[in-house]
Amino acid sequence: MAVKKKGLGRGLDALFPEKSVKPAEKKQEQKPVATNESLHQQEEGSLNASAVKSAAETKDTAQAAVVEEPKKSEMLVKISKVEPNRTQPRKQFDEDALLELSESIKQFGILQPLLVSNKGDYYEIIAGERRWRAAKLAGLKEVPVIIKEFNDQQVVEISLIENIQREDLNPIEEAMAYKRLIDEFKLKQDNIAERVSKSRTAVTNSLRLLKLDERVQQMLIDEMISAGHARAILAITDKDKQTSVAMKVFDEKLSVRETEKLVKHIVEPPKKTQKTVNTAEDAIYESLEEKMKGIMGTRVFIHRKKNNKGKIEIEYYSRDELERIIELFESIR
């Protein structure tokens, strides 16, 4: 029997006010097909909430719903009449995973119906686009669906929750979905965090990724860098520098810690001690160096320090020249 996934708080239960329960799942145990369940577990687990009552309702009421509501909402429709939701958060699908799921569907069919809304001349997918794509690859002519009517906000929330539960969204898709909930439906970050059962900090950090240069965002989508790398690069405001650092991270396979150090060096370069410029004084010391060079017959450097202190450096290039310089000093006495 399908098991309700408990990983994300309210999850989809909070978005399904109706009491539709599949009798086949309550009255009798599902036929054991280990291979099918293992292949479908990740795909199907998060959507079982669409076929059960809200957790707040009592067990007795749930049993009554089994008797009162037979499978009237589930039906078979032509797969050509079903279309994906163009605004759904997920944009990329793993081809290998789709092929694996399609092979399972060829053998065992679709265990969990697609959740769709009736658009008149076609059905729009609310949840289950991956199954729909795999069913097309498997050559199915019809797919099981459950028709539900939701407003635009609920559709976005359901799609977002479904994908987050299965960790199917890449970091940028997830951030874009949060942004849409904020921009179009005026939700606060706290509201979003509650709906997807994540911390507000996690939602905030996700949204910050949209401040990255588009080239860096694409590298994140392509898994050339991780979300940890991307968050470190966010400290750089210049878009071109962001891209340059991201490429360096990829080329040199830098860790997140190494990336943080690199970014810190760029953002806060070590301060160089500036020499006090004194042109007149410099000229005097250069003149003294030249005078001493004439006396010594070799290069002489005067290194100044604070409080009128310093040291004199005299170069020699052979043992004989060293002895000559020593004799010169001795002649001064």
Rank of each mutant, 00 (worst) to 15 (best):
K4Y: 06
K5M: 02
F16R: 02
P23Y: 07
E25Y: 08
K27M: 12
K31H: 12
A34G: 02
N36S: 14
H40Q: 12
N48D: 00
A51T: 05
V52Q: 14
K53T: 14
A55D: 05
T61Y: 13
T61L: 13
A62H: 15
A65N: 12
E68S: 06
E74W: 05
K81F: 03
R86D: 03
R86C: 05
Q92A: 10
A97V: 10
L101V: 05
F108H: 09
G109Y: 04
L114R: 01
L114Q: 00
L115T: 00
S117L: 01
K119L: 09
G120C: 12
Y123P: 02
I126K: 00
R130C: 04
A138C: 03
L140P: 04
V143P: 05
I146P: 00
D152Y: 01
Q154H: 06
V155E: 10
V156L: 05
I158T: 10
I158R: 00
L160D: 06
Q165A: 09
R166H: 01
D168I: 00
N170V: 02
K179V: 03
I182E: 10
L187G: 07
L187W: 08
L187P: 11
N191H: 13
N191M: 07
R195I: 08
T201M: 06
R208N: 08
R208I: 11
L210P: 08
K211H: 14
D213S: 14
D213C: 09
E214P: 11
S226H: 04
A232F: 04
I233A: 13
D238A: 02
D238F: 12
D238Y: 08
K239E: 15
T243F: 12
K248Y: 10
L254P: 14
E258M: 11
A283Q: 03
I295E: 09
M296I: 05
R299E: 07
R304E: 06
G310Y: 06
K311G: 13
Y317A: 08
Y317P: 15
F329M: 08
S331I: 06
